[in-house]
């Protein structure tokens, strides 16, 4: 019989299709693994309502478990509690940075309109002299920044709370 720990281990081999350095575990979208008899249920939560990668992650999880000999695994999508970037693992944050994506910072309350801007350090040169180009980037979960020192444009994995 397969154990919960083994399933979590297998999930470490399933990657986010849009940010392929992160596993679904790093990303914090796996909420729960429930083992019953010879099969299991994996509970996941979407990052953003319209994230097109969710369906793909669901299929990839099923495929990976099948490949590991876990037959008929189910994937359930739950919305609550809503995903937050606080669930990114420490390991995930490190991997993001190495990959050239700045990990989420504490942005304060987004509903406060004229708040002081927070600083996103450049993932390439660590300079704090960076500029927001756009709140919205190449995927739902990223914003677009540029470093004013090394001049590199970079993605920022924006804070969602």
């Amino acid at each position: 019989m397969v154990t919960e720990k083994e399933i979590w281990g297998y999930l470490e081999e399933v990657f986010d299709p849009e940010i392929p350095v992160l596993t679904v575990v790093d990303l914090g979208v796996v909420r729960e693994v429930i083992v019953k008899d010879d099969t299991c249920k994996v509970v996941i939560t979407p990052t953003y309502s319209g994230c097109p990668a969710m369906k793909r992650m669901e299929d990839d999880i099923k495929e990976k478990l099948e490949e590991k000999g876990v037959k008929g695994a189910e994937v359930e999508l739950v919305l609550s509690p809503a995903w937050t970037t606080d669930w990114l693992t420490e390991n995930g944050r490190e991997k993001l940075k190495e990959y050239g994506i700045a990990p989420p910072e504490d942005e304060g309350d987004k509903s406060v309109l004229f708040a002081k801007p927070f600083v996103v350090p450049c993932p390439q040169c660590n300079s704090k002299n960076t500029k927001l180009i756009s709140q919205f980037g190449s995927t739902s979960c990223k914003a677009h920044y540029q470093c004013q020192d090394c001049l590199e444009p970079f993605d920022y994995f924006k804070c969602l709370r």
Partner: peptide
């Protein structure tokens, strides 16, 4: 940037609608 922003936001709304 705004093309990308508006389509990103559209995606959130269509996701909510779903």
């Amino acid at each position: 940037e705004e093309d990308i922003a508006m389509t990103n936001i559209a995606l959130d709304f269509v996701g909510q609608a779903t």
